[in-house]
């Protein structure tokens, strides 16, 4: 079988590839009893003394490389920083591996590097190592690994949510993915729609610094919120019930999503976090999130339950099962 686009779409097809072909062939996957590759969390850890080093890597390709709200440089920093952040870690340093195609415009590379610099300053991280190659690729590819620090045993796992927990999402969903889709296809904008790409370490830190515990956390990127919630539910063996009318969605995303028949729940974000917290803390955490500019649209969207597995959404008429998106949606209504 050959790799198809579906294998990179972040859905079940991709999960299968990772579990079988990639994980299946690796034997050494963890260090010092830290969180290893097999848990497929947002990042892994290496315990050292009373701290854990948190480590992650992310390859970035995006078409187009410049889009409303950001560019590939900004994504390369934020994607990696956010993976560290949702582990509860403080991001410190990044690496950059840049693969350039022949004929790539140096002016564009300059713009990208400036954007990387901006994002690093926002996130308060440094690029401390790097590599540049020119190769036979379609467009620029940037891989960035990142290192962060968390107190021993304090890493927030995908699997950590408990029954009765409340699910909070930090802001409007679906903006990045829709922006990319429309820009890629050359839609002429008279729309305020733009990517949400941003480093969320400051936002997460504000909650942790206030002394609250976050039981589980993810950044809903590819596959959207639907994918992250399903992963959290599956890894904890519990269910999540969300409410359609409580999802934070901007009017623009709602409108364009409805016009295209694309469910914002399944669309990528690059500057959001979804967390499971204790019910009694939830209102206070929501308040803290709302103070931060990146959290002003934060909302409580649901609860964790043992009454069912997977993710259910309460709609106007009855409940709907929110599946892990498979890739492109397939019509099912006669």
């Amino acid at each position: 079988m050959k790799i198809t686009r579906m294998h990179g779409a972040g859905g079940t097809v991709m999960q299968k590839l990772i579990k079988e072909t990639i994980l299946g062939n690796l034997e050494n996957t963890s260090v010092n009893g830290g969180i290893g590759l097999e848990s497929l969390d947002d990042a892994s850890t290496i315990p050292l003394g009373d701290k854990e080093i948190v480590f992650t890597v992310d390859g970035h390709t995006v078409k187009p490389i410049f889009f409303p709200g950001g560019d590939i440089g900004r994504i390369s920093v934020c994607g990696t920083v956010n993976d560290l952040s949702v582990m509860g870690a403080t991001p410190i340093a990044l690496s950059l591996s840049i693969i350039l195609p022949e004929g790539f415009d140096i002016e564009n590379l300059d713009k990208i590097m400036k954007s990387i610099n901006e994002a690093c300053k926002e996130a308060e991280v440094s690029v401390i190592t790097g590599d540049t190659k020119v190769s036979n690729v379609d467009d620029i590819i940037i891989s960035s690994a990142g290192i962060g620090i968390v107190g021993l045993g304090n890493a927030v796992r995908d699997s950590g949510m408990k029954e009765g927990d409340v699910i909070i999402v930090s802001g409007n969903i679906g903006e990045h993915g829709l922006t990319i889709l429309l820009t890629r296809e050359g839609f002429e904008f008279e729309s305020e729609l733009k990517s949400d790409v941003a480093p969320i370490n400051g936002l997460v830190k504000s909650v942790l610094d206030a002394g609250f515990k976050i039981n589980a956390m993810k950044d809903p990127t590819r596959g959207g919120l639907a994918d992250s919630l399903n992963e959290m539910a599956e890894k904890s063996g519990l269910g999540i019930l969300i409410h359609e009318d409580k999802l934070p969605i901007s009017n623009e995303v709602q409108f364009i999503g409805e016009a295209l028949g694309i469910d914002p729940l399944t669309v990528a974000n690059e500057g959001k976090v979804v967390m499971a917290v204790r019910a009694e803390d939830s209102e206070k955490i929501l308040e803290i999130l709302k103070i931060h500019p990146l959290g002003k649209n934060a909302k409580i969207i649901g609860t964790v339950t043992s009454e069912h597995k997977g993710v259910l959404m309460e709609t106007l008429v009855g409940k709907r099962i929110v599946d892990t998106p498979l890739g492109d949606p397939i019509p099912r209504v006669c």
């Binding site: 296809e185 839609f187 409108f255 016009a259 295209l260 028949g261 397939i330």
Partner: peptide, 20 residues
């Protein structure tokens, strides 16, 4: 008008379009 514009765009670019 906006909806129509998106619809035409969708058909031209084949975004979330199935064959039936």
């Amino acid at each position: 008008e906006k909806e129509l514009k998106i619809l035409i765009f969708q058909l031209e670019k084949g975004i979330n379009v199935s064959k039936t």
